[in-house]
Amino acid sequence: MTKNIIELKSPGISEDTIRNLKKGDVVSISGVMVTGRDVAHKYLKDTFISSQNPPESEKLVLENLKKYLDGGILYHCGPVVYKDENNEYKFSAAGPTTSIREEPYEYDVIKLFNLRGVIGKGGMGAKTLKACQEFGSVYLHAIGGAATYTAERVKKVIGVGKLEEFGSPEAFWIIEVENFECVVTMDSHGDSLHESLLLESEKIQKEIMASF
C-alpha cells in the first residue's frame, strides 16, 4: 500500500494543490525553498509583524525573501555548510530541526509570506494547524537526522541572508532542491498525525501503567 508521490514545484504552489493534500500523503518537492529556524522566526516577528515601521534596510530583506517564499516553502533547518573549490557554498548536512520551537511565530510567518508549506520534524501545535486551515498550507515532515541524505537533495545554494548577524545554522539559506520527499503530517483540513498519535499513545500508556 505504498502511496503515490505527489510532485510539488516551489515557489508558486497553488492553494488548490495544497488543499487537495491529506494527512499521510507523500510529496516530492523540486524548486527553491528557504531555511529559517529560531532566530529567523523571532526576527520576522519582531521586525515585520510586531513592529509597524521596519527600517528600510530590513524591508529590502523582506522583499528579497518574498521572491522565494510567496507561495513557497520554509524549511526548519540549520545546515552544515562549507565552501567548495569554486568558493561556492555547499550543504554537507541538512536535516530538519525540531519545529515546535517555532509554534509561537509560525501562524504569523505563514500569513506574512503566504507560505504553502513548512518543512520540519516533530510536528507543530494548534495555532499552526489553524494557519494551515485559514491560509491553505501544510506541515511537511522530513526525516530527522537524515542529514547527508537530505543534503544530497540540495542541488545549489542560491544565496544567503543574515549570515553574519545570525550565524550559519540560523541564517536564511536560499536553496534549490530536487525530489525532496516529505510526509504531510498536518493538512489544511485540520488533521494532524501528531495529535492523533499522541492521543492513541496516551491511551495505550494508561493501559500499560495499569498493568505494572
Partner: peptide, 24 residues
C-alpha cells in the same frame, strides 16, 4: 520508509565522511 531513509543516510554519511545529522 523512514527507517529505509535513515539506513540510506547513515550509509551515505559513512561513505562521504559527512555528518550523519547536521546537529552535531
Amino acid at each position: 520508509r523512514a527507517l529505509g531513509i535513515i539506513i540510506e543516510n547513515f550509509n551515505l554519511a559513512y561513505e562521504k565522511k559527512t555528518p550523519i545529522c547536521q546537529d552535531t
